[in-house]
Amino acid sequence: MSDQPREALLKRLEGMEQMPTIPVVLAPLLRYLEQPLDQLEVQQVVDLISQDKSLAAQCLHMANSPLFGRWQTVDSIRNAVVALGLQRMRDIAVSCSVLTLLPKEKTILDPVVFWEHSLGCALVCRQFARKIGFPDPAKAYLAGLLHDIGIVAHLWILPREFAATLQQAQTQHIPLHEAELATLGLTHCETGKMVAERWHLTPDLVAVVGCHHDASSATINRDLVALVALSDLLCRMEGLGYGYVEERQVNLLEQPGFDVLLGECPTLQTFDWARFTFELEAYMEEVHRLVSVLYRAQ
């Protein structure tokens, strides 16, 4: 356990002064895109994204990735919005914005590793949602992308304590949240929930951020929480975790989220987990490539 008790750590986290706020461009963009589709104007979205040149450049890189369905180059934000649609551009803009949240100075967690996990989880959530007939794959993407924002808070506010935690997880090959609980007395779920509430994220996203390591503890949107929990676990088992191997065996059907999700999506009963796992291999490769390009472009 850290030499500071849990309460003292929580007090340091509460202020969150060191933590960056939700990127300036993102809040108005998200608000704008919440409106009904027929009220949206492409130019407005283009203008919002283009305000931040770095964000715009990164959005273009992502828009050209096959992960977002493009096989021919788009060379402007306008073309990207037209070709991909507003919803996908929202996904892309949010993804790029999240990548700017990490501290610029060197931290214990390689930013590339964190990006890869967040983006990989978002994509797996979206694909998993589509395959099992989950009603809102776009929401699943967003939830997958943001589920670990508590780790970002730990990197900003508790860098020394979190470094020791991650080292313990790496040495013992155990899940990060277990090491957090052992060393800090709190997990990135608890911290992430504080961040999510501070950022005024929607209640379903707050639930995902706060409960993705214990889907059974969610009281609202339990299906979305479960979907992210299973996708997150799959990513970690398939080598897209936090830069180390969790040495364990997992039966996805025995996870607490499985039954919750099964209630919402009956097709999960006959879901081909093996094929889905094999399909991820291609995702992983593209996520590594894309994040490497984005990192260079930052």
Binding site: E238, R248, N251, A274
Partner: peptide
């Protein structure tokens, strides 16, 4: 039953 191990299935 399929089980997941690190980067492998069994």
């Amino acid at each position: 039953r399929l089980v997941h191990l690190p980067s492998a299935t069994a």
